Simulated assay, not measured.
Amino acid sequence: MNRKELMQQYKAAPTFYGVIEIKNDQNGKTFIDVARNVHNRWGYYQTNLNGNFYHDTDLQADWNRLGAAAFSYRVLWKADTSETDNLRQALKDLKVEWLEKCHPAYNQH
């Protein structure tokens, strides 16, 4: 398959929004977030945590101390983006719901 066909195939594939979790596998602490595209969000967080972007957070401190290997990523819930009329509002509602449901340690301020 050539590059143009691969790009068309990628663009035609469904995109899933949803709720993600980053878990510290050593102490069990979790971070919950919502994402427009759950499949590429882990790379986003790894890049930012490796770049010390979240410098004033417990998540960043643990990442710096323990390293990337101490963390795992998983999708807690997802749906096709074509299933919602207002993605922005759906993400806001999901975040509130899942933060109340899970009480993740890294999201506490």
Rank of each mutant, 00 (worst) to 15 (best):
H103Y: 00
T81H: 03
N52E: 13
L66A: 02
P104A: 01
N50C: 09
K11T: 00
F71I: 11
E100H: 14
R88V: 11
L49E: 07
Q108M: 03
D33Y: 09
L66H: 03
V96M: 03
L66Q: 11
I32C: 04
Q26E: 07
K92W: 00
R3L: 10
R74W: 03
I32D: 04
N48G: 15
G43H: 10
Y44D: 13
N24G: 02
N50I: 08
F53P: 00
G67H: 10
Y106C: 02
K11D: 12
N52V: 12
G51E: 08
Y54P: 05
R3V: 06
L49N: 04
D93V: 01
A90P: 00
Q60M: 11
A69L: 05
K78R: 12
D56L: 12
V34L: 01
Q108D: 14
W42F: 14
P104L: 03
L99P: 06
K101L: 10
L6H: 04
H109C: 08
K78H: 07
L59W: 03
D62S: 10
L66C: 05
D33T: 13
A90Q: 08
E21Y: 01
P104E: 01
Q89K: 14
R88M: 08
Y10E: 06
G18D: 06
P104C: 09
K4W: 00
D25I: 04
T84S: 10
N2I: 10
N2C: 07
E97N: 09
Q8N: 04
H103K: 14
N40E: 11
A69C: 06
Q9A: 15
A68P: 14
G51W: 01
N86L: 03
K92I: 06
E100D: 14
E100I: 06
K23I: 03
Y106T: 03
A12N: 15
N64I: 06
R88W: 09
L49Y: 11
P14G: 10
Y44C: 12
R65G: 00
Q108L: 03
L6F: 08
A12I: 04
L87M: 13
G43C: 09
G43A: 15
A13W: 05
Q46G: 08
A12R: 14
A35Q: 02
